[in-house]
Amino acid sequence: MLKFLSKVGAYAKDAVQAAKYIGQGMGVTFDHMRRRPITVQYPYEKLIPSERFRGRIHFEFDKCISCEVCVRVCPINLPVVDYKFNSEYKKKELKSYSIDFGVCIFCGNCVEYCPTNALSMTEEYDLSTYDRHELNFDSVALGRLPTKVTEDPLVTPIRELAYLPKGAMEGHQVDHRQRRAGQRPEELMAESKEGTEA
């Protein structure tokens, strides 16, 4: 009899425990009712790509010296540099330059190693096309600039975590023009000067 009772007791205790912990878990889920969604409603809202974002590559024809460093550091030697050596001026003359973005992995090595900064990264990331050959950009297409998210009247720009003001954790909460975290070096200098004077 006593064994039976202790069994019932243990079972009841177990049930209460289970109910308690499931309730605790549900507490967490229901707590989310007072939180705003953090999802970004693309394409009505768009995240502002970071300053270092490695999007479609921009190329300036006149800066290029046809040195082909971009080809050498590229994992698959992707950029096509077509030049002709001009024996009169003893210089290479660039005829055309192209990168196929259907193959590019946007690692940014070419941009990093370009000696004349002819290459740079844009914030363009939506490169989908119906025909993959359209992604093979020649030097004219490479010279175009993308539209900025912040200047598109149809889009609400939202900043990513690293660019929010100190304390803000979510891009929806703050206007994207509000100042981001981190003081300017000049401000820090002024502060430290005040500190030494006082």
């Binding site: 270092r52 975590l161 690293a162 660019y163 100190k166 975290a181 981190g182």
Partner: peptide, 12 residues
């Protein structure tokens, strides 16, 4: 690291 990154990382 970019400007303000350390602050935001701390926040995180």
């Amino acid at each position: 690291l970019p400007y303000g990154w350390v602050d935001k990382c701390e926040d995180f």
